[in-house]
Amino acid sequence: MLTSHRFSCSLGTISLYFEDEALIGLDLEGSAGCGERLMAQLARHGIDPTAFRPEATPAALAVEQWLINYAAGSKDPFTLPRKLYGTPFQISVWNALEALDYDEVISYAELARRVGSNGYRAVGTAVGHNPIPIIIPCHRIVRQDGIIGRFGAGDGTETKRKLLRLEGHSY
């Protein structure tokens, strides 16, 4: 069963997408166009983007509450069910992102090293296709020179800066 849940909080308007009780996507609405990329990515893996039906399931409400708590400064780990649709390489990058602590901000090159790849650009592409931003903290990846870089959710770089500051970083 494919369901979706949309709500607003201090982070912005968020749409969550579930397969059964597992989170498979998050769209932080804004100018960056995350939702279109997410739906195209899910479609490539056989999920019909038109099949989601709005429903505030217990899983959706639990993820909503986690995000509200996160926005209020909670640093609790995300332990709710999630399912990733991507290539094995993408999934390895997303898993490495999830392993980052709240106080870690690293470069694409360092992330590539952690996943055993010399291709920091390939890692950057995988980061850019992260289906669950915020929860899989792709916002904690910056350029080698320390410049914040782009962000594909919400209002792009400004949203990334907001998330990093929320976590106590000085960007």
Rank of each mutant, 00 (worst) to 15 (best):
G152N: 15
T57H: 12
Y85W: 13
A153I: 11
R140W: 08
D155F: 06
A71V: 12
R150Y: 11
A51G: 14
R37A: 07
G46V: 10
A72W: 02
S107I: 01
V115W: 00
H129S: 14
A99F: 07
G154H: 04
G119T: 13
G128L: 12
I47N: 04
P77I: 02
D101G: 13
A56P: 12
L100G: 07
P77A: 08
S117L: 02
L163D: 03
I68P: 06
K160P: 02
G46Y: 11
Q65L: 13
N118D: 14
P88Y: 13
F89W: 13
V142T: 09
A112T: 00
D101K: 14
A96W: 01
L61K: 08
Q41M: 15
R114F: 07
V142M: 07
A96E: 09
T57Y: 08
R140A: 08
S117C: 05
H129M: 14
R37P: 00
A32Y: 14
K162F: 02
A109H: 02
V127F: 04
H139D: 14
T157I: 13
D48H: 12
E110T: 11
L163K: 04
P137G: 12
T125H: 13
G46N: 12
E110R: 00
W94P: 04
Y70M: 03
L67A: 08
W66V: 11
R143M: 04
G149V: 09
V63P: 14
L100I: 05
E104A: 10
V142D: 00
R53I: 11
Q144L: 09
L42F: 08
A72G: 07
